[in-house]
């Protein structure tokens, strides 16, 4: 594999992980909760593309809409699902001042609930779906062939990260979210509405999940009710490597994990390749031993009061 191909491949996977990590990091910032259900929102967005059926062949539903309508509908569904999970599963626990472990278990439960609903409606057999067929073609770039979808994934991620920076630095809601991430109680004392900030974080995380589901399905064309789990784990590991409580850290941590994973896959001798994840997570352990607080640790990651 050519170096440019390898780099684009690695950045594409890193971008996916960075987007999951950003969603998890946003919610951790305002709620001190690790939301494993983030991966299952990605799965939900993907399954929304097809008609709910137990048949092996699922005809497209939202997947047959024109591109703009398709994108908006999927984002609306996943952002809405994010808000609903917050309102009915997590907010009551937060009101009762539940600890981080309880919230974590609750997020697992929400994730498994979503998976089980999809399993019930669609069965456990993977299904195929095709969206944005144009993106699957190969591009000629500097004499090498690269997949268009990888370039699009990297560009969309860069665009979303830029939009997030503008939101967090320029808009009052974004500045309030950063303040709440740093000291939630103090933000409330200054009048910042806790419920609104947290609901907004879930909506944004849900929207990110929706966009990622589209990029993921466009690349693989496969639906599987467990497809969100490895993404959530990668996103979570990314936030930990980057440093809990730092959004920049979460993004860079996710990127690092994806890039490292791709590079190991390409560069390990063939005999060692099946053990790629052992090397990857060995590297994660090493990073955490050297910097237990993460590479870009936030200033304030204490318990919520």
């Amino acid at each position: 594999m050519n170096a440019i191909q390898l780099m684009i491949d690695a950045l594409s996977l890193g971008s996916q992980y960075a987007l999951v990590a950003l969603g998890i990091g946003l919610i951790f910032g305002v709620m001190r909760m690790i939301n494993f259900a983030q991966g299952d929102l990605i799965m939900l967005g993907a399954y929304a593309l097809v008609v709910p059926t137990t048949a092996d062949l699922a005809p497209p539903l939202i997947g047959k809409l024109p591109a703009v309508a398709l994108i908006i509908t999927v984002i609306t569904i996943t952002a809405g699902a994010g808000i609903v999970t917050e309102r009915f599963a997590f907010r009551p626990l937060r009101r009762r001042e539940a600890d981080g472990a309880t919230l974590l278990i609750s997020s697992f439960a929400v994730g498994y609930l979503l998976q089980s609903i999809v399993l019930f409606v669609h069965t456990g057999r993977p299904k195929s779906v095709s969206i944005f067929a144009d993106l699957t073609r190969q591009l000629e770039l500097g004499g090498v062939r690269v997949a268009m979808i990888d370039i699009v994934t990297i560009c969309v991620t860069a665009l979303l990260l830029t939009a997030m920076v503008v939101f967090l630095r320029r808009l009052r809601w974004g500045i309030e979210m950063r303040a709440a991430t740093e000291d939630f109680t103090m933000a409330r004392i200054l009048g910042v509405r806790a419920d609104a900030v947290i609901a907004l974080a879930f909506a944004i995380a849900g929207a990110l999940a929706g966009i990622l589901s589209l990029l993921y399905v466009a690349k693989t064309g496969v639906l599987d009710f467990r497809m969100g789990v490895p993404l959530a784990i990668a996103g979570f590991v990314g936030t930990v490597i980057g440093g809990m409580g730092s959004l920049v850290g979460a993004v860079l941590g996710g990127l690092f994990l994806g890039v490292a994973s791709s590079l190991l896959q390409a560069l390990l001798p063939e005999v060692l390749r099946p053990g790629r994840d052992a090397f990857l997570y060995g590297l994660v352990i090493f990073v955490l031993l050297v910097r237990p607080q993460g590479l870009f640790a936030g200033r304030n990651v204490g318990e919520r009061t």
């Binding site: 009052r172 500045i175 309030e176 950063r178 303040a179 740093e182 000291d183 103090m186 933000a187 200054l190 009048g191 910042v192 200033r299």
Partner: peptide, 19 residues
């Protein structure tokens, strides 16, 4: 005091002026 150390002075004041 509990100021938001990672935010600028301007941003600290913006948070407080929201209501």
């Amino acid at each position: 005091r509990r100021i938001f150390g990672g935010l600028t002075v301007r941003e600290n004041l913006i948070v407080a002026s929201g209501i």
